[in-house]
């Protein structure tokens, strides 16, 4: 559905995007993760045909974003990270205006507006001036606005930024519902735990380069699996920590809720050697489990080292 090939954007001598490539199949939610200034917004603006790339190509449902802008605009719903609203317009009028801009027939627009307001849970706010809404409600209206022409692809730039926890949960539920409706969604965010729950795919970008991309499970496994151990011992927890700490492969040890978590460098052989050291010292180990890190771990690792 979305294909990005070697996308590059230069501002003078500074490269904002450096040969970024990724693909998003249909009906996937792609989480675009990166620190501020990494190139997330630049990528989304290029995908929305609002910015011309210096090099590379990108396609939305087969339409080239640099050559078929009109087609792209009919196939995407774009929600920028910062956006304004028109004062003096009610929520219903605001959505009706954009539906008209997208050339929706007048007799259908009322139903479109009502359906979208129901989808984002704002039916009772239809007559309220859009400028008087809270940020969370404005975000919802803007999401509804992006849907007025029933696009196949949604490009959402930080849709949850500035929202309180409840509003974030509600936004997440709306996005899940949109996925069930068959939308392909690209969502940039720096709120990683939410992306882990929401996204099916993830791309980690830093300094304009794509550090890792793939399914959430694969990326996390690739970047973090086997590097953290959760060890449960019978009674000799302090002794076990004293044995683990001096080991050269072990980088950090801490007690967490009755268990021991140890970070180490190495592979499965290293892990088995750590276990052998503990049992050889007479520590009774009841469980010894490699722990997968979360997206946050993967992100930190991806942005602190080069990933092939």
């Amino acid at each position: 559905m979305i294909a990005v090939e070697g996308l590059t954007k230069a501002y003078g001598s500074r490269l904002a995007l450096d040969h970024v490539s990724f693909e998003v199949p249909e009906r996937e939610i792609f989480g675009f993760v990166g620190p501020n200034g990494a190139g997330k917004t630049t990528t989304l603006r290029i995908l929305a045909a609002l910015l011309e790339p210096t090099g590379g190509r990108a396609f939305i449902d087969g339409a080239d974003v640099t050559r078929e802008r009109e087609k792209v605009h009919t196939r995407i719903g774009y929600m920028p990270d910062f956006f304004g609203v028109y004062d003096q317009l009610s929520v219903g009028e605001y959505l009706d205006f954009y539906a008209a801009c997208y050339r929706q027939p007048k007799q259908r627009r009322q139903k479109i507006v009502d359906d979208l307001l129901a989808l984002v849970g704002m039916t009772e706010r239809k007559g309220q001036l859009v400028d008087t809404l809270s940020r969370g409600l404005k975000q919802r209206v803007c999401l509804a606005r992006a849907l007025v022409h029933d696009p196949a692809v949604l490009l959402l730039d930080e849709p949850a930024s500035g929202l309180d926890p409840r509003a974030r949960v509600e936004m997440r539920e709306i996005l899940k519902e949109l996925q069930r409706m068959g939308k392909t969604i690209v969502i940039s965010s720096h709120i990683l735990p939410e992306l882990t729950e929401l996204c099916t795919m993830v791309g980690i970008i830093d300094h304009g380069r794509m550090r890792a991309t793939g399914s959430v499970r694969d990326v996390i496994a690739r970047l973090t699996s086997g590097r953290r151990l959760r060890i449960t011992v019978i009674a000799e927890k302090d002794a076990a920590i004293e044995i683990l700490e001096p080991l050269p492969a072990v980088k950090h040890v801490q007690a967490v809720n009755g268990t021991i978590e140890a970070e180490y460098e190495g592979d499965e052989v290293t892990a088995s050697e750590i276990l052998a050291t503990l049992t050889g010292a007479g520590i009774r180990v009841s469980s010894f489990t490699p722990v997968d890190g979360g997206l946050e771990d993967a992100f930190l690792r991806a942005t602190s080292e080069e990933v092939g």
Binding site: R45, A48, L50, H73, Y78, F83, Y98, C101
Partner: peptide
């Protein structure tokens, strides 16, 4: 300034 221009640019207008 109101940051509404991009929302117009992505319409077919």
């Amino acid at each position: 300034e109101r940051q509404t221009i991009d929302l117009l640019f992505v319409t077919p207008l």
